[in-house]
Nucleic acid binder design. Structure first.
Lengths: 178, 178
DNA sequence: CAGCGCATGTAAGTGGTTACATGATTCA
DNA sequence: TGAATCATGTAACCACTTACATGCGCTG
């Protein structure tokens, strides 16, 4: 039940239309809470009905016309309340680990290549995060509010990708040593 | 679309009833592909219909009676084929990181406590994995088939929990330094 | 024989994915 | 004016979650 809160956060950072939100999800919030444009439009409708956001008055309201949304006080209050709720981490789900476990039972020749492929993908993601870090968080901005929290979030993404790169490298080495 | 393959893997490791599978998911395969008993029963029905598994002949087939399943050759073939397919890693989804990003916008007083809580949970999970490692994978078994792949999978779980513990510890330290 | 735990299931609801539909704008 | 692109939306489907229902077997 977190998509609406992801959208509220994004809209507070900057009022946007549905498609703009979609794009921003693709390269920012979506790194830890992804969403497609269909989800976003549906959710925008619900949030508007709930009185959490409103569409800025548009000259010609019609299908195919851009519609900008902004967060209302009730929406900000809802988000602030949600921030202070507790929620257990969801158990992880990794198709790759599952594949590996299955390979331990039935064998399989393509596993090595699949590990290499994932390694390349995670390396690319790591590089992307590191670029964002040097661009948006120069050392002097890292310790000051409100950048500190956002930098910690990015750090989480970076360290997670590093974990994958290291584990995959290790796994490939083990498989090669057969 | 991986639950059926998780079940096939588990059944190949050891033929089981639905409830036994549920329990084994809770403390083994479920660490990287969790499932509830409702999902498992439903999926067992589908797998049986597809001819991938069969129920071992029971003395009294009736509701409330235990039903053991075993994998048929077609099921093993399906699993072997699946192991050699490619699949991109799904973008991660973390409610905690989202909360943190929201806190950067609307503030929030409970974030610190929530981080501590998650830290405790991840520490406990890490300990559990480490116990499994010392119990099931003594050093001499780690390099030999077929334990090597399974040990790599466990290693993945361990390193992932270590990542969380380290990141959370760092984040809590940063927040304390206000 | 009542109550509890084991075991298998059904039903309804939610959230996310995939495929498609429609209107507006721009530009060759 | 027709094709490409921007922008908003609908519909069907699928996986997962939550709540509940039912029957068997053992034990007090």
């Amino acid at each position: 039940m977190s998509l609406p809160h992801a959208i509220l956060t994004a809209l507070l950072e900057k009022p946007s239309s549905g498609l703009e939100l979609t794009r921003r999800f693709d390269r920012s919030i979506g790194y830890f809470w992804s969403a497609t444009h269909q989800q976003i439009y549906r959710e925008l409708g619900k949030l508007e009905q709930a009185g959490y956001i409103r569409a800025l008055p548009a000259p010609v309201p019609a299908r195919g016309q851009k519609k900008e949304y902004e967060v209302l006080p009730a929406g900000r209050a809802e988000l602030a309340a949600w921030v202070d709720t507790a929620e257990d981490p969801k158990p992880m789900r990794s198709g790759l680990l599952l594949r590996m476990r299955a390979a331990a039972v039935v064998g399989g020749t393509g596993l090595r290549a699949e590990l290499e492929r994932h390694l390349a993908l995670h390396r690319r993601q790591l590089d992307e995060y590191l670029e964002i870090e040097t661009r948006d968080f120069p050392p002097e901005r890292r310790a000051t509010e409100p950048g500190r929290l956002r930098h910690l979030v990015l750090r989480g993404g970076i360290d997670l990708e590093r974990f994958w790169v290291e584990w995959l490298t290790h796994a490939i080495g083990e498989l090669a040593a057969e």
